[in-house]
Design a binder for these strands. Structure first.
Length: 477
DNA sequence: TGAAATGTTGGGGCG
DNA sequence: ACGCCCCAACATTTC
């Protein structure tokens, strides 16, 4: 009887989990392990919202695995010695995991695999997170794609592999090693700011499928037309589930193809394609992060190294106002409050808020990326990096530098009836629709700390300032 | 997955 | 009838 470790990381599911399936196929006894080692992810340790999600996702995974027969072993501390200790305690000689693609983690995992193999341990890694491995997709010239459309023509056309069913039972190790209580990881906040998160989300594999089926039963039909409207609730809400691997892109692709074949849902084909195309952007983001590992900190386009951002000291109070949803620009503040309250922001509003921060406030995009990293339940290094570099205009396939959103026009266009603004800025609820969209000077009675602020920047003049700044680096390299 | 400035067109009022 | 002006409405250009 042989025993193997399955090292869970961000593949917190039992269905279509290649590492788990392979380990179960090749060994009789399984030791599922999760190791909390946030320092090894530096400088991108999971943020507060992300750790909140992780707590509940691990809770459910451990319940599921216990039900199948093998309890999840939770440990804290440096990964390699911890794995060695679990190997020694269980007599396991093999370990299985699904790959991660962040620079710090690929480096760590490569080192761990080498060390374990040198010690005679069979270490196997799998693709559980992407439709295609980043090194499998290249242009005709052999270089990584930098533009989405040709990338997706290539990566999106690959055949779908068969899904792997979840194990029906798992035999635990003869000697079950010690496990740290989940509470000891202190993933949840000490003070109870997480009520909004709890009201908004159900982490875990079951929650992921509930959200998926809700989406495919309803919103996907109007996804293409309605997903841009923040009050329409027409998005899939799957991003955090995807980040933690509670569901994988291959499963979503298969689910979309099944929906396509259903005669009960006319017109779904184009809708399903629009949705899977967004999964494609997630693929593209991971592809770019793998091939350009400095991009979480550095702009992909080198001329942006010399971009005249405002200094930290100059921007300090503006950054704080942006973070707290007190810029005086209604749609921006609504979005930032949605983020703070629910750990999530509608994608259209992410673009508006990010454009405002980088272009109207002229604050380096890295500060926005860091704030999103700490507050989003779907914080994902690849997606976050792509999104911020796209908005700032310094990334791959980025918005051109001169594309500066007018947050008032965006608000009028995408929240015409003001429902999203009313929901997140209740103190402005009494105004007419026109007044709702438009920033205004605070009235004398509004000058208290709690009232809605006057705009912290003039939109027209800051737009000109941004164009001047971008002109400085135009053509430079 | 923009916005603003500038250019063009065509209908209608009017002398 | 005709030219002229005004100005939406739309199209193109520029950032």
């Amino acid at each position: 009887m042989t025993t193997a470790i399955v090292w869970f990381r961000r593949d917190l599911r039992t269905a279509d989990n290649p590492a788990l399936s392979a380990a179960c196929a090749e060994h009789q006894r399984i030791v599922p392990v999760y190791i909390d080692a946030p320092d090894e992810e530096a400088p991108w340790q999971p943020g507060a919202a992300s750790r909140w999600w992780l707590h509940y996702s691990l809770l459910q995974l451990s319940e599921t695995l216990a039900g199948l027969g093998a309890p999840l072993i939770i440990r804290q501390g440096a990964t390699l010695p911890t794995l060695r200790a679990v190997l020694a305690a269980t007599g396991a000689r093999a370990i299985y995991w699904n790959r991660l693609y962040e620079p710090a983690l690929t480096a760590r995992d490569t080192e761990i695999k080498q060390q374990l193999r040198d010690a005679g341990i069979a270490a196997h890694s799998f693709n559980g997170a992407l439709l295609a491995e980043p090194w499998e997709i290249a242009t005709g010239g052999g270089t990584p794609y930098r533009v989405f459309t040709p990338f997706w023509r290539n990566a999106g056309a690959r055949p779908c592999r068969a899904l792997l069913p979840p194990p029906t039972q798992i035999k635990a190790a003869a000697r079950i090693p010690d496990s740290t209580p989940l509470q000891a990881l202190a993933l949840r906040p000490e003070i109870g700011w997480d009520s909004g998160l709890r009201a908004s989300w159900t982490p875990g594999e079951r929650g992921a499928w509930a959200e998926t089926e809700t989406f495919f039963a309803g919103n996907i039909a109007r996804y293409r037309d309605a997903r841009d409207f923040p009050d329409a609730a027409a998005t899939s809400r799957l991003s955090p589930h995807l980040h933690f691997g509670e569901i994988g892109p291959m499963q979503l692709l298969a689910r979309a193809q099944r929906a396509n074949n259903s005669a009960l849902t006319p017109g779904l084909s184009a809708a399903a394609e629009a949705f899977i195309r967004q999964v494609g952007w997630r693929e593209f983001a991971h592809h770019l992060l793998f091939h350009f590992p400095t991009t979480p900190e550095q702009p992909l386009q080198p001329q942006f190294d010399h971009f005249p951002w405002r200094s930290r000291a100059e921007a300090r109070t503006d950054l704080a106002a942006w973070q707290r949803g007190r810029t005086g620009i209604p749609i921006v503040d609504a979005g930032m409050r949605e983020l703070w309250h629910t750990g999530w922001m509608h994608n259209r509003v992410r673009m508006i808020a990010a454009s405002f921060m980088t272009k109207n406030l002229l604050i380096p995009w890295q500060h926005g990326a860091r704030w999103f990293w700490d507050t989003l339940v779907d914080a994902n290094l690849a997606n976050n990096t792509l999104g911020w570099q796209w908005v700032a205009g310094c990334g791959a396939d980025a918005a051109p530098y001169f594309r500066i959103f007018n947050p008032i026009l965006q608000s009028q266009k995408f929240d015409a009836d003001g429902a999203y603004l009313r929901r997140w800025l209740p103190e402005r609820g009494g105004r007419s629709i026109a007044a709702l969209h438009t920033p205004s000077a605070a009235t004398p009675s509004e000058l208290q700390q709690t009232a809605y602020p006057s705009p912290i920047v003039d939109l027209a003049r800051s737009r000109e300032r941004a164009l001047t700044a971008y002109a400085q680096i135009k053509g430079a390299s």
